[in-house]
Design a protein around this nucleic acid. Structure first.
Length: 396
DNA sequence: AAGCCGGGGGG
DNA sequence: CCCCCAGGCTT
């Protein structure tokens, strides 16, 4: 960690004062105007923002004028900037200030935070720039600059990273010019310390920067590790009656929420544990989880008629055909698969069996649909694949 | 802590 | 064209 008494904050400020662009929101101390600029700059480049900023402030020069405007007109002024929900948030924030703060933008970081749509970053920017409060304003640019400065090895979004960065800035931030200090960091990130094209030769922090010392500027900030792919089996019952197939609706949260599926179960390979049982079987625990002695054992286990019969019993609540189904599964068990399906964070190894059902079924969660109807329903691709491969018999 | 929102910009 | 993403909010 950089020690207090470090000189880089001075270098940074002097660089900023030397190169800073003359932007409209840098010629005002009006917290409302700075608020507007911050919201616009969150989503768009400086040169695009300038004309919108001027037009917007001309039409809505005060919190009151914005609060009293119709949302329609605010959105109209925003047209072309994108991210219209933020225009709405700005408008709602203005109404909040008008109503709860006597029309005056709060003067402290803490009170700015109470405005809906104003988070840590925006509150910090307004407090430091308009009121010279010594608080950080950490946006994506600042995160990148700091991560490189100290060659920080964790994703910036981590709680630990945010704590370390805040501590670092607490030491470094200028007492006399906290707003300029924050703007300088952002300017640096926007111009020299860019995501891809770094210009370290011109950077005031070149000799202080750990990433540069390592020759690894682009390695920081380290990216969030993508969630590892969870491996799972997906066992499915294709229950038919003539042209009809049995389907059910998935739960309204989680994977493939509210979509349709053929009845069955997902078993995470991660959940497979060594069984206490003396025999070599997978046992269906009360929770519905399966336990096997090893992956190898499990990989064979779904060939057992008993495995599919157990699954069938957990999945179909109409037990009138139990004997019938048991016979079918024991006599001519044909397991189909594997078919693999990959989601963003999960990988299914899919197996299924075909079953004929003789007549009506009484199960509140299940319903018959024809293949024609199925085409018009929200059936995830994973299950469509099963329909397309009726002859993929498993050959252990 | 992780994901969504919902559109833009960069490669 | 696809991939990635800021900042605030929700779960």
């Amino acid at each position: 960690m950089k020690q207090s008494g470090s000189v880089w904050p001075q270098h940074l400020l002097q660089w900023f004062w030397r190169v800073k662009r003359d932007l409209p929101w840098r010629n005002t101390e009006d917290p409302y105007a700075i608020w507007v600029s911050e919201v616009m700059l969150q989503q768009t480049q400086v040169k695009t923002v300038i004309p919108y900023y001027q037009k917007f402030l001309k039409r809505f020069p005060t919190v009151r004028s914005l609060a009293e405007a119709e949302l329609e007109e605010v959105l109209e002024m925003w047209r072309g900037l994108g991210y219209y929900s933020r225009a709405r948030h700005l408008w709602e924030g203005a109404r909040f200030v008008f109503e709860h703060c006597e029309g005056k933008v709060p003067e402290t970081y803490e009170n700015l935070l109470k405005i809906p749509g104003v988070g840590e970053y925006t509150a910090g920017a307004i407090a430091s720039i308009a009121y010279q409060e010594r608080v950080p304003a950490i946006d994506g640019n600042v995160n990148r600059v700091l991560a490189r400065l100290i060659a920080w090895e964790e994703p910036t979004a981590k709680v630990k990273s945010r704590r370390v960065f805040r501590e670092l800035l607490k030491e470094a931030q200028s007492s006399k010019y906290p707003g300029d200090f924050n703007q300088a960091l952002m300017e640096l990130g926007a111009t020299l310390c860019a995501p891809k094209n770094v210009r370290c030769g011109e950077c005031p922090l070149e000799i202080e920067c750990d990433a540069h010392r390592l020759g690894q500027e682009l390695a920081f900030p380290v990216k969030q590790e993508q969630p590892r792919v969870m491996e799972a089996f997906r066992f499915t019952l294709m229950i038919r009656k003539g042209d009809q197939l049995l389907v059910r609706k998935r739960p309204s949260s989680g994977l493939l929420a509210d979509l349709w599926e053929f009845p069955g179960e997902e078993i995470l390979k991660h959940d497979l544990q060594i069984s206490n049982n003396s025999n070599d079987c997978i046992v269906a625990a009360e929770s519905g989880e399966l336990y096997g002695k090893s992956d190898q054992v499990l990989n064979r286990e779904f060939l057992r008629p008993g495995f599919w019969y157990d699954l069938y019993q957990r999945v179909v609540s109409d037990h009138s055909q139990d004997e019938n189904m048991k016979k079918k599964l024991e006599k001519g068990l044909e397991v189909k698969g594997p078919i693999f399906h990959i989601f963003s964070h999960r990988r299914w190894e899919m197996y299924w069996v075909d079953l004929e059902w003789p007549d009506e079924i009484s199960d509140i969660g299940l319903c018959w649909v024809s293949r024609e109807e199925l085409k018009r329903m929200a059936l995830p691709v994973a299950f469509q694949k099963l329909l397309e491969e009726p002859n993929r018999n498993y050959e252990g």
